[in-house]
Computed example of a mutant assay.
Amino acid sequence: MTTYVLLHGGGMGGWVWRHVAAPLRAAGHEVLTPTFTGFGERVHLLSKDHGHDVHVQDVVGVLRYEDVSDVVLVGHSFAGTVIPGVVATEGGRIRRIVYLDAVMSYSGESVSETMGQMLADQMPGVRAAVQGGQAGPGTDVHVMQRELLRANPHDVPAERMEWLLEHLSDMPLRSVVDPVAVGVETLPRTTEYIAAKNDPTMARSHERAVELGWQMHEWKADHSFIVGQPEQVADFLLGHG
């Protein structure tokens, strides 16, 4: 039996893996879907004091207290910035790492910088504003995502899209402006990356995965494929060990 630990993207939570987790469990595997502090059902903990380092600890705590090993660690979108810190701390528990169209931040770089949303010289001012209460504590990402997805729907069945939109939540601003302590350059070349080629949003991260020599898989899909094509995701995870 393999333990799959599935880490969600921005504005989401462990709930988003419902349709991927079901076939993995049906195949006899254990599936854990933790939610980061300040996201999803834990959005009530959203705070200016909860940043990227807390999200790494969220996952480290799950691995330790669930006492799991032989883990397949999977991250979608924002979770790509959390995985390296988890591996640096609990790498002995992890057998395989899979990025699903996930963010590729280098050590010392924030998610906002990686995504081209802000420049490095803007970050100190934004961080000071968050800490001083002049900005945040949230990003309003759920509002922005709803507007974008309604204006430009992804390849997701209508009923499931409404489910996705309804469940989106805010997330801590610090999680996208704090520098990532441990970046993707620390991960092994055996890390696998699935690139959704129908969505240019993550193009910079796709390029970095290639530059690092990771095992690349290009899918004709958009960024929401974990909800729109969950069977394909589960088959990939099962079929590749």
Rank of each mutant, 00 (worst) to 15 (best):
T3R: 03
G9L: 15
G10L: 14
M12F: 12
G13E: 02
W15Q: 03
W15A: 00
V16Y: 10
V16E: 04
H19N: 10
H19M: 03
V20Y: 03
A22W: 01
L24E: 13
A26L: 07
A26Q: 11
A26N: 06
G28H: 03
H29M: 00
V31K: 08
V31M: 08
F36D: 07
L45C: 08
S47R: 07
S47M: 06
D49Q: 12
G51F: 05
G51H: 05
H52E: 09
V56E: 11
V56A: 03
D58Q: 11
V60L: 10
G61N: 14
V62T: 13
Y65F: 13
E66G: 02
V71D: 02
V71N: 02
V71P: 04
V74R: 07
T81K: 11
P84I: 08
A88N: 05
T89N: 05
R93M: 01
I94V: 15
R95T: 13
R95V: 11
Y99Q: 07
L100Y: 02
D101I: 00
M104D: 02
M104P: 08
S107T: 15
G108P: 14
G116S: 00
M118Y: 12
Q122Y: 02
V126T: 09
V126S: 09
R127V: 08
Q131M: 10
G132V: 01
P137G: 13
V143I: 15
Q145C: 09
Q145L: 15
Q145N: 04
L149D: 07
A158F: 12
E159G: 15
E159C: 01
W163F: 02
L164E: 05
V176I: 14
V176H: 04
V177I: 12
V182I: 15
E185M: 05
E185A: 11
T191R: 11
A195P: 01
N198I: 03
D199G: 01
S205F: 07
R208T: 13
A209C: 02
V210K: 10
V210C: 04
E211K: 14
L212I: 07
W214E: 10
Q215H: 14
M216F: 10
H223L: 00
V227I: 15
G228Y: 06
Q229K: 12
P230R: 05
V233W: 02
A234E: 05
D235E: 15
F236S: 06
F236C: 13
